[in-house]
Write a protein that binds this DNA or RNA. Structure first.
Lengths: 333, 333
DNA sequence: CTGTTAGCGCGTTCAG
DNA sequence: CTGAACGCGCTAACAG
């Protein structure tokens, strides 16, 4: 394949000049730059990532670590990241880490340490101590889209507030028997996104002097939401409103309600979180968190960090917004 | 960061021996290997991707090019690819190419040529002549999940047969007024996946001596499917069965039918293609094409090619299967 | 502004 | 089986 010295020869200059002309670093006269660019274009020359990375220490790539690829939220965030990164000429190296501890360690201890990436973005990952230590040991900018983390630069939506907002919305409609579908109280880390949404629910309820009318753990899938809702709604003393910690679970809840012959929102109000594109089709009221924008924002933050801007070690705050599409209404009884 | 000579020093051997011990190439006595491995583990040493790639010409990474990230089919295929690749120690470098020609060229002419990847997988990409030439110029194994392509190794489901199967299913139920939602006859390349599904529909109908009762182009989204179905179903002379070229469009069609007060499958039968996880919730009859498996298979094929196996320049065939979930039934009238 | 020179960190001959 | 030395392709520093 054509290398830098082919271009140098074709343009009648040294390889150093070619490098300068193409990278923009260091000064080159306009005339020579033109010649070099022309020669490079003609020969179809593209810098070798490996050689360039070895010489500069910069890989022009960002690692993105996600727990799932085939769920709406993650692929949407990823799309946002990809957009923003490609715009700035960066490649994205993708790591999907499952729950399997062996594979997980391999990603953190091996793949991520190959010095193939200049920065890391993690999306909604719950890291254990070793993992976050491993990440910090990379010595590259890291941005976590996640609940606040003491050791990482995080971009977080205030999920406590999200939980409170969803709950307040239901309370304002007059509901007094509210249930929640979301985090398992035991399993989830207290600062995880699901746990915060749940706590927002509980706190807001406590503020109103009301007790939760049921909390069902579920796994953030439609299926899980459906099963949880079935358990909640098939009792005599069913809640009149359900706050699901994700739109996928909320959609599952709507489907379950239908199967039980219940009308939404007449018999039961349902609200979710995410702004899932499907929500529209179910008339789902939701707290939109602008997933795609989260990805773009994360990409911009890491890129700025790479451009030298000392990023706030603190945390960026992400917007959210209640979107009423009709699946919530005042209770009948 | 700790480098190969740190390990060499710690183990009391030369860097060459470390390299051999860690890579498995070349022979090292067991005793020495143990010492080296121990030292490497203790120091947390990981080979630098850039240095290794420069020296070996192998990047241990595969490029994956998709047209969308935030649609079910693509993220599901991607999940399959990722799984299989990580298992074999490869990184995945992700390129999402939009329709924007400038950005597209940048990906093909720049990013993909940085020699950062050892192979390429493209997913349902319609490549123009320059783009496929550019890919072939990469001189790395390429696997395209797509309709048959004369110049690339392809993994393809026989979409003509898929179209025929879906159509035959409806015919067998007794339908005679069948419509299709899918490819735009004009815009789509004749060998593209959507066009083939459409042709399967038309051919099978011709075999039965029946004329198509409407063909509506749509963009493979729920929304598009819904709009197309609305156009088809809101006439007096509506079709009794609709074959949508994707499950997302089929779901849109189901939703549209409901809004028009039509019962599925009583008033109108609807069949899709994909095996979308959501299909279950809509009772959608579909032709499953096992998206995740496609990804895994593609990954295995490229990896085998990298391991020296001269791959069939021909094409691999992917399975598909009719899954009846109740959205199709004999016509009432 | 431009060329020369010395590495970047590893893998690999080739002797020993 | 092991070590020394060279080179992968490019960039940074230094002269000029």
């Amino acid at each position: 394949m054509t290398g830098i010295d082919d271009v140098a020869r074709a343009a009648g200059v040294s390889t150093a000049t070619v490098s300068r002309a193409l990278s923009g670093r260091g000064s080159v006269s306009n005339a020579t730059r033109e010649r070099v660019l022309a020669a490079a274009a003609r020969l179809g020359y593209v810098v070798s990532a490996a050689a360039s990375a070895l010489a500069t220490g910069r890989a022009r790539a960002v690692g993105v670590v996600v727990p799932f690829l085939d769920r709406w939220f993650f692929s949407t965030v990823l799309a946002g990241i990809s957009d923003a990164l490609v715009r700035r000429g960066y490649d994205i190296t993708l790591y999907s880490v499952s729950a399997d501890p062996t594979e997980r360690r391999r990603v953190f201890d091996d793949h991520l340490r190959r010095r193939r990436i200049d920065a890391v973005i993690t999306v909604a990952l719950e890291l254990d101590a070793e993992e976050s230590a491993s990440l910090r040991g990379l010595d590259v900018p890291i941005v976590a889209i996640a609940g606040p983390h003491p050791l990482l630069t995080t971009l977080t939506v205030d999920d406590l507030a999200v939980g409170r907002l969803a709950t307040a919305h239901l309370l304002e409609l007059g509901h007094r028997r509210l249930a929640h579908i979301g985090a398992d109280a035991v399993a989830a880390a207290a600062s995880s996104v699901p746990a915060l949404r749940r706590r927002g629910f509980e706190e807001r309820l406590a503020d109103a002097g009301i007790e939760a009318h049921g909390v069902e753990p579920a796994d953030f899938t439609i299926d899980g939401g459906s099963r949880a809702a079935t358990r909640l709604l098939s009792t005599d003393d069913a809640p009149t409103a359900v706050f699901a910690a994700s739109d996928e679970m909320a959609i599952g809840a709507i489907l379950a309600a239908r199967e039980l012959g219940l009308h939404v929102p007449h018999d039961v109000s349902i609200i979710g979180v995410d702004g899932h594109e499907l929500g529209r089709w179910f008339g789902l009221t939701s707290i939109d968190q602008f997933a795609r924008g989260q990805g773009e924002r994360a990409a911009e933050v890491v890129l700025d960090a790479l451009d030298g801007a000392r990023p706030a070690r603190g945390l960026g705050t992400l917007p959210f917004e209640l979107v009423d599409r009709g699946s919530t209404a005042p209770p009948r009884r």
